[in-house]
Design a protein around this nucleic acid. Sequence first.
DNA 1: ACGAGCGCCTGTCGGC
DNA 2: TGCCGACAGGCGCTCG
Length: 274
Amino acid sequence: MPELPEVETFRRYLLQGETGSPSILGKKIKDADLLWERTLAAPSPADFKDRIRGQFVTGVGRRGKNLLIRLSWDTLIIHLRMSGELVVEEKTNPPGKHYRLILNFTDKYRLAFNNIRKFGRVWLVEDPVQVIGNLGPEPLADDFTPELFHQILQKHSRQLKYFLLDQEMIAGLGNIYTDEALYRAKLHPAKKTNSVNSSETQRLWLSIREVLQEGIENQGSSIDWMYQGGDYQKYLSVYNLEGKPCKYCKTPIKRIKIAQRSTYFCPTCQPLPE
DNA sequence: ACGAGCGCCTGTCGGC
DNA sequence: TGCCGACAGGCGCTCG
């Protein structure tokens, strides 16, 4: 499910809390229940439980789609993959059917990793670089400039859709926001990166930042049963809209497969040259 | 270097 | 009603 805006929404939820659930900042971890072993990428379950006990939550960050929960002397990295979500609640609540990892705090609250499809992964590491070290630039950061983006695009000869989904090229985009950004920039998803000129680069750079920012402002997208709580699905222009008229030219939105993913675009506004 | 295909999982939806 | 295939906000792995 989650792409950068949804992960950012979870980050803010953990940090600020909301009505009925507090911030996790400053809480002390009493112990951990690992309910699906493969959730844990590293270290071993025994080491994990031993090391995490007694640590305090000192911060909650994000890098691409990874959540970084800073602890006293380690960092807990959570990747939600397709169907993960995080819940802060009282320990007395009945646990969800798909809880895979629970961190019990020393007070009456816990942090639960709910993950229907079991794809999500968690790491407990001293240095996050070993997990997130290969990620591309953070698209909303100040150092992600159009010039830098242009350089990366020109270094490769790949279809834009493949390129944008590759977290080592740029971190945080997934299937929804990639299609939305390409549509807004009027670029065909199969166009090659090194054929993108500088004004197209500028457009795509801006489109990426706009769709991500708008996603964050609306607490992400809630397309189906997987994730509820966001509103940005109301504002999507192409994703999941096969056959619907393009809002600019009324041409029916087309769906094709690229990178084994459904890819939505307007054949008129996003032509493939030659 | 690039991209296709598959596996990992559970659940929903539409067609017959 | 039940069954079956297609599909789902991700990503790592192979192979050509």
